[in-house]
Amino acid sequence: MTYKLILNGKTLKGETTTEAVDAATAEKVFKQYANDNGSDGEWTYDDATKTFTVTE
Rank of each mutant, 00 (worst) to 15 (best):
1 M>C: 14
1 M>R: 12
1 M>S: 13
1 M>W: 13
2 T>C: 14
2 T>H: 07
2 T>D: 06
3 Y>C: 04
3 Y>D: 04
3 Y>G: 04
3 Y>N: 04
4 K>N: 05
4 K>W: 10
4 K>I: 12
4 K>D: 04
4 K>E: 04
5 L>P: 03
5 L>Y: 02
5 L>M: 04
5 L>R: 00
5 L>S: 01
5 L>E: 03
5 L>T: 02
6 I>G: 01
6 I>Q: 04
6 I>L: 06
6 I>F: 06
6 I>W: 03
6 I>N: 03
7 L>G: 02
7 L>N: 02
8 N>V: 13
8 N>D: 08
8 N>G: 05
8 N>Y: 12
8 N>H: 11
9 G>H: 06
9 G>Y: 09
9 G>R: 06
10 K>T: 12
10 K>N: 11
10 K>W: 09
10 K>Q: 11
10 K>C: 14
11 T>N: 12
11 T>Q: 09
11 T>F: 14
11 T>H: 13
11 T>P: 05
11 T>S: 11
12 L>W: 14
12 L>Q: 12
12 L>S: 11
12 L>I: 13
13 K>L: 07
13 K>Q: 11
13 K>E: 05
13 K>H: 12
14 G>L: 15
14 G>A: 12
14 G>S: 14
15 E>R: 06
15 E>I: 13
15 E>H: 10
15 E>C: 15
15 E>M: 13
16 T>A: 11
16 T>V: 15
16 T>C: 15
16 T>F: 15
17 T>K: 06
17 T>W: 13
17 T>F: 13
17 T>R: 07
18 T>H: 06
18 T>I: 14
18 T>A: 07
18 T>P: 01
19 E>F: 15
19 E>G: 04
19 E>K: 12
19 E>A: 07
19 E>N: 12
19 E>C: 14
20 A>V: 03
20 A>R: 01
21 V>S: 11
21 V>Q: 11
21 V>A: 12
21 V>I: 12
21 V>K: 11
22 D>L: 02
22 D>Y: 02
22 D>W: 01
22 D>E: 03
22 D>K: 02
22 D>S: 06
23 A>C: 13
23 A>F: 13
23 A>S: 08
23 A>M: 12
23 A>V: 11
24 A>V: 09
24 A>S: 09
25 T>H: 11
25 T>F: 06
25 T>S: 13
25 T>G: 07
26 A>K: 00
26 A>R: 00
27 E>N: 04
27 E>S: 06
27 E>M: 13
27 E>I: 07
28 K>I: 09
28 K>P: 02
28 K>V: 09
28 K>D: 05
29 V>N: 05
29 V>L: 11
29 V>Y: 15
30 F>E: 01
30 F>V: 00
31 K>C: 05
32 Q>D: 06
33 Y>M: 05
33 Y>P: 01
34 A>L: 14
34 A>V: 15
34 A>S: 04
34 A>I: 13
34 A>G: 01
34 A>T: 08
35 N>L: 15
35 N>M: 15
35 N>Y: 14
35 N>S: 14
35 N>I: 15
35 N>A: 15
36 D>K: 10
36 D>S: 09
36 D>I: 11
36 D>P: 04
37 N>Y: 13
37 N>C: 14
37 N>K: 12
37 N>R: 13
37 N>M: 15
38 G>F: 14
38 G>H: 10
38 G>L: 10
38 G>P: 02
38 G>S: 06
39 S>E: 11
39 S>D: 05
39 S>H: 15
39 S>W: 15
40 D>K: 14
40 D>Y: 15
41 G>T: 05
41 G>F: 12
41 G>D: 04
42 E>G: 05
43 W>R: 00
43 W>F: 04
43 W>L: 04
43 W>T: 01
43 W>D: 01
44 T>P: 00
44 T>W: 07
44 T>D: 08
44 T>R: 07
45 Y>F: 05
45 Y>P: 00
45 Y>K: 00
45 Y>I: 01
46 D>Q: 03
46 D>P: 00
47 D>R: 06
47 D>W: 07
47 D>S: 10
48 A>Y: 09
48 A>W: 07
48 A>M: 10
49 T>K: 06
49 T>E: 05
49 T>W: 03
49 T>D: 04
49 T>N: 07
50 K>Y: 08
50 K>L: 10
50 K>Q: 08
50 K>I: 02
50 K>S: 05
50 K>G: 04
51 T>D: 00
51 T>L: 03
51 T>R: 02
51 T>N: 01
51 T>I: 05
52 F>V: 02
52 F>E: 00
53 T>H: 06
53 T>Q: 06
53 T>E: 04
53 T>M: 09
54 V>H: 03
54 V>W: 11
54 V>R: 03
55 T>E: 07
55 T>M: 07
56 E>F: 14
